[in-house]
């Protein structure tokens, strides 16, 4: 095994536990439905119940990963990279959305979907900073970026559509990440 491959195992463990992305992606969908007040989601308690279910699912999946793949504490460098990625993410999504399309005086007011655009860029950057960027990330978030950047989003605020698209992208990448993760950590050998 090469040195880089071994040193990279912790980064893969930290960033490619893709099954966790499924409840996270569904949360985006839940938020969009709650905003639109569609059907039962016009009641706040339905949203809160959905949140609790997704939170429970997330915790169970995290426990399953720990049980089958172990636990690792990231190095100081890795933690710093995560903090940098998070700060950049917040700044980019918030600032970028205001710049591209908002009621702010400095807004370019472009007919694009700012949340889809900025979210796609943030996800690609965070995978790159975590040193786990894969072709499927580029493909899925590239498509999200392209869809959001098309100048077709005239009229109403497209935020809820963006949330749905982002949720779908998160889930798609999550499934592929999990496949990559299980390949990186095959079943351990057994003593003869």
């Amino acid at each position: 095994m090469q040195r880089e491959e071994l040193e990279h195992r912790a980064a893969i463990h930290a960033h490619l536990r893709g099954a966790l992305a499924i409840p996270a992606g569904l949360l985006f969908g839940l938020a969009a439905l709650g905003n639109e007040q569609v059907g039962p989601f016009r009641h706040d308690w339905v949203f809160l119940a959905g949140l609790a279910v997704l939170g429970g699912a997330y915790a169970l999946i995290a426990r399953a990963y720990r049980r089958h793949y172990g636990r690792v504490s990231p190095s100081g460098g890795e933690q710093l990279r995560s903090v940098v990625a998070l700060v950049l993410a917040v700044a980019l999504v918030y600032g970028g959305s205001l710049l591209l399309r908002s009621r702010a005086g400095f807004s370019l007011d472009l007919p694009v979907n700012p949340i889809a655009v900025t979210f796609a860029i943030v996800m690609l950057a965070s995978y790159a900073i975590g040193r786990v960027l894969r072709p499927h990330h580029a493909a899925v978030y590239g498509m999200l970026l392209a869809a959001g950047a098309l100048p077709v989003w005239h009229g109403e605020d497209p935020s809820n559509v963006a949330l749905m698209l982002c949720g779908a992208a998160i889930i798609a990448c999550g499934v592929l990440d999990h496949i990559a993760f299980t390949r990186a950590f095959p079943a351990p050998a057994v003593d003869g």
């Binding site: 071994l6 195992r9 912790a10 172990g70 504490s73 890795e78 950590f185 095959p186 351990p188 003593d191």
Partner: peptide, 24 residues
């Protein structure tokens, strides 16, 4: 090499990351 890239890890992670048997 694996341990040098993390703060700490448990036995199971190390086993998965190195591909060694429990005994080894």
């Amino acid at each position: 090499t694996v341990l040098s890239s993390v703060a700490d890890a448990d036995f199971l992670f190390l086993q998965r990351a190195t591909g060694l048997t429990k005994g080894n």
